[in-house]
Amino acid sequence: MKRTIAAAVTTAALLVGTAPAALAYEPVNVVHTETVQAGPYRVVVGFSTWPVRAMQSLDFTFAPDGGLEGKSGYLTVVPAAAPDVAWDEPLARHPRKRDVWGLDIRAMPVAGDYTFGFHLEGPQGPGEGTLTGLEVLAQPGPPMGLSWALSTLPLIGLVAFLAIAWRRHRNRTATR
């Protein structure tokens, strides 16, 4: 028992101790930029992958001229193909690039043209601007129907097991 506990503690210590090395988070590499004028503020929108494809996640950066100091705001994202899934969210610092706002490892859900709206408040007052016509290409990989068919096999197996258990139990109790 003592040996088991010692082994468990050592394993946990090794896991925690080596976690920083294992967690080699990739830096944010911007490979393409667009510029948006939101009132008095110029915002450089960066993409870590270009072109953008549906469901394929990437880092987005939003860098206003003069830095983030004294500025805040929110972002609206509107996909032309599915305006009902449009959303807005506060402009938050990118977790791996804290000097700019951003979306970390985020995917656009559907293909088509997107509009990013920037609604800013800052030392020079409010400002609004949009990035229009951001083209998101079709998703890579197999069709979603095939992916779902593969991924629901455990669920089908589980339901089948429960159905068999039910039937066998009913038959057994009926014959007693």
């Binding site: 995917a107 992916s147 593969l150 669920l155 589980l158």
Partner: peptide
């Protein structure tokens, strides 16, 4: 293929969860 977007309801995640 798709990156590390934290989507809980991706097909493989549903396979893992079930």
């Amino acid at each position: 293929l798709y990156g590390f977007d934290a989507v809980i309801d991706s097909p493989p995640h549903i396979g893992l969860l079930t």
